[in-house]
């Protein structure tokens, strides 16, 4: 192998600094959440304890953290399932040009780049004028979809751009109906990418703030609850909460990556021997 040039080491150091920059702060609050009962928001550590984590599980003076967590979790699942189904359908549709497809595509891009506060404000105003009550599961749900669906759609574009159409043609040649082709050929092939779409759907919803702000109604989602806490909680309990919810996000990401990896393994094991001269 070729010797590495000097620029490699400089760039590697830069990359390491970048990773430190990305993860350093979150590690810091991870450490600080183990502050002793007398400890403050910054170093030095005043002893080491689980005090602030215990505090989280006790009755809170302000807010309803666990209720907010349950709502965010439920909403995340709703958004995840909807995002996967709607993105796959739209992805299939966009494989062929249809009247108005360009318009719909630009609408999806607009949905991605529009300042979030416009969605929040607009949806809030509509519900208000129609006399409907805003609620996280209705107005909040719809607003979050405007953020997750474009991501899902873009992933589906990337997937179908690389999709080998000859599999479908083979299925059709052997007499599969178009539904059978999708169900037994297309969906299994794109399955790992669907886990990716699901990951985007869930985590983007679970952490969504700006589009949910004016559309969640009287029951807060977790990010709204945490933001509320920043103004009136001055103890490391907020770090403890931050650490827990970040660990939860990491667990979800790890589960998804594991899922993709297992699918890949299974596929390699059960793969076809076509063309291998067996």
């Amino acid at each position: 192998m070729e010797r590495r040039p000097r620029s490699f080491y400089i760039l590697a150091a830069f990359f390491a600094l970048f990773v430190l920059f990305l993860y350093g702060p979150i590690l810091t609050i991870g450490i600080l959440s183990f502050q002793g009962p007398q400890g403050g928001l910054t170093f030095p550590m005043n002893g080491v304890s689980l005090h602030w984590f215990r505090d989280l599980f006790q009755e809170q003076a302000v807010g309803d953290i666990w209720g907010a967590f349950r709502r965010s979790f439920a909403l995340g699942l709703m958004v995840m399932v909807t995002t996967v189904v709607v993105s796959v359908m739209a992805g299939l549709a966009f494989r062929k040009r249809f009247a108005g497809s360009a318009l719909l595509f630009y609408a999806a891009i607009t949905s991605l780049v529009i300042p979030s506060i416009l969605i929040s404000l607009g949806v809030g105003l509509i519900f208000n004028q129609l006399g409907l009550k805003i609620h996280w599961a209705t107005s909040g749900f719809g607003s979050q979809l405007t953020w997750t669906l474009p991501f899902g759609l873009l992933i589906m574009f990337a997937v179908f751009n690389r999709f080998d159409k000859s599999y479908e043609e083979a299925a059709r040649d052997q007499g599969a109906t178009s539904w059978q082709t999708i169900r037994f050929v297309v969906l299994p092939i794109i399955a790992p990418s669907l886990i990716g779409v699901a990951l985007f759907g869930f985590t983007l919803s679970y952490d969504e703030f700006a589009r949910t702000l004016l559309t969640a109604g009287s029951y807060n989602t977790l990010p709204l609850e945490i933001f509320g806490m920043t103004t009136n909680v001055t103890t490391p309990v907020i770090y403890a909460l931050g650490t827990l919810t970040t660990l939860f996000s990491f667990a979800i990401i790890a589960a998804c990556l594991l899922g993709v990896w297992i699918l890949g393994k299974r596929r390699a094991r059960l793969g076809s021997d076509a063309g291998k001269g067996v």
Partner: peptide, 26 residues
């Protein structure tokens, strides 16, 4: 064209209700 719109209709519906309508309202 009909099939395309059928498959894309959920996306179109969400964008109509929660993107286009809010912009118009604003």
């Amino acid at each position: 064209h009909v099939l395309g719109w059928l498959e894309a209709s959920p996306l179109a519906l969400v964008l109509l209700l929660f993107l286009v309508a809010p912009i118009v309202m604003i």
